[in-house]
Amino acid sequence: MVQANPQILQPMLQELGKQNPHLMRLIQEHQADFVRLINEPVEGGEGNVLGQLAAAMPQSVTVTPEEREAIERVSIAFS
């Protein structure tokens, strides 16, 4: 999944860091092992570990009223 959509890796890692800082620290300490793990196929299933994590992650975020206003300003600027 990461090979097909490399842009998903950074947002997923950021969310993981928010939800589980200890796991994020372990990933940073063992980057080579992590990269190998996310790229290898999952036994008994399709895709890889990161692909399965992406499917399990929420597809929406909660924003504050101030963040919503900023998003709307950017949206208007680019429309």
Rank of each mutant, 00 (worst) to 15 (best):
Q52M: 15
M57V: 13
E67M: 08
P58E: 13
L50Q: 00
S60H: 12
E43H: 02
G44W: 02
I38F: 07
G47A: 05
V42R: 15
N39A: 07
E67K: 12
A56V: 09
T64K: 12
G51V: 01
V49H: 05
P58N: 13
V63A: 06
G44R: 00
G51D: 08
L53A: 01
T64F: 04
I38V: 03
S60D: 07
P58R: 13
L53T: 02
A55P: 03
E46S: 13
G45T: 11
I38H: 03
E40R: 12
T64P: 02
E43W: 03
E67D: 10
E43I: 02
G45P: 00
V42P: 02
A56L: 15
Q52K: 13
E66Y: 11
P58F: 09
P41K: 15
S60G: 03
E69A: 14
V63R: 07
N48E: 14
P58W: 06
Q59K: 15
A55C: 11
L53Q: 06
Q59L: 14
N48I: 11
G47H: 08
E46R: 12
E46H: 12
P58K: 08
L53E: 01
N48Y: 09
L50S: 04
R68C: 09
V49K: 08
A54R: 12
L53M: 06
L53S: 00
P65E: 07
P41D: 09
R68S: 11
A56E: 15
V49R: 07
L53P: 01
A55R: 11
N39L: 04
E40I: 08
P65I: 01
P58S: 08
N39V: 05
M57I: 10
E46C: 07
M57F: 15
E43G: 03
A56Y: 03
E66N: 14
G45N: 15
P65M: 11
I38K: 07
N39E: 01
I38S: 04
E66A: 04
G51T: 03
A55K: 12
L50A: 04
I38T: 02
V63C: 10
A54Q: 06
V61F: 06
G44E: 05
S60W: 14
Q52A: 05
G45I: 03
N39C: 11
G44A: 10
V49N: 03
A55V: 15
R68V: 07
P41V: 06
E40F: 04
L53K: 00
G45W: 10
A55W: 14
E40Q: 15
T62P: 08
A55F: 12
G47K: 05
E66P: 00
Q59S: 14
E67P: 10
